[in-house]
Write a protein that binds this DNA or RNA. Structure first.
Length: 211
DNA sequence: GCAATGATGCACT
DNA sequence: GTGCATCATTGCG
């Protein structure tokens, strides 16, 4: 039901964590109100050898949470205006995380729409990593926070697993680096979901069953 | 529909 | 000074 995901869930291989987070409920408590949505798109960033990972240059002040214990957030500012939400995975000391890219909005829709701005269509509430952070009021104050703690402002609630037939994989969005980094299919999303970010043609072209 | 571009702050070379 | 794991707007067809 409302069981929070434990640290053991995050302390596993990053690709497994990413795959298994599909369908789980990302929940934010803001001024006593619940804002939530199902995770329907997520990417994995694994180790310093991953060309498109923030951990590529080694430990820095910004990417330090990626080297910390699993089950913590890594929130960063991108392009000066948007935030991206990650969850740290694997063992402490090994830099890996998953980037949440899109949600199917569930609770607190009025507040989420208000946070995003009334001019935006409901479909774009949380379709994209920057947008979902706006919809759930996620900024740098939520960086390096323990999502497994009882009093966390942000956590993940368990939900029934998603059938393999509904999972699609593709290369990650907006990556730089060598051919391997660009082409490796470490983006997981729910096939057929209208809440997935990016272009339909891209998703259809790359859609294939996971694992 | 789509591509091009501007907005904007901060970490890092 | 440079370059982003992005999004919204514009201008084209």
């Amino acid at each position: 039901m409302n069981e929070h995901l434990s640290r053991a869930f995050f302390a596993r291989p990053t690709l497994d964590v990413a795959r298994d987070l599909l369908g789980k409920r990302l929940t934010r408590r803001l001024s006593g109100e619940r804002l939530s949505g199902y995770i329907i798109e997520i990417e994995a960033y694994v180790g310093e050898d991953d060309q498109s990972s923030h951990a590529r240059p080694g430990l820095t002040a910004r990417n330090a949470p990626m080297y910390g214990p699993p089950g913590f957030t890594y929130v960063y500012l991108i392009y000066g205006m948007y935030h991206c939400l990650n969850f740290v995975t694997e063992r402490e000391g090994y830099p890996a995380a998953v980037l949440v890219r899109a949600l199917e909005p569930l609770e607190g829709l009025t507040t989420q729409q208000h946070l995003r701005g009334p001019q935006h269509p409901p479909r774009d509430l949380a379709r994209g990593p920057g947008r979902l952070c706006q919809a759930l009021a996620i900024d740098l104050t939520l960086n390096a926070r323990d999502v497994c703690a009882d009093d966390a402002p942000l956590w993940i609630e368990d939900a029934p697993p998603i059938a393999e037939s509904r999972v699609a994989r593709s290369p990650r969005i907006g990556v730089r680096g060598d051919d391997r980094a660009v082409s490796i299919p470490w983006r997981f999303y729910l096939r057929e979901s209208p809440w997935v970010s990016g272009k339909v043609s891209f998703n259809r072209h790359h859609a294939k069953t996971g694992q």
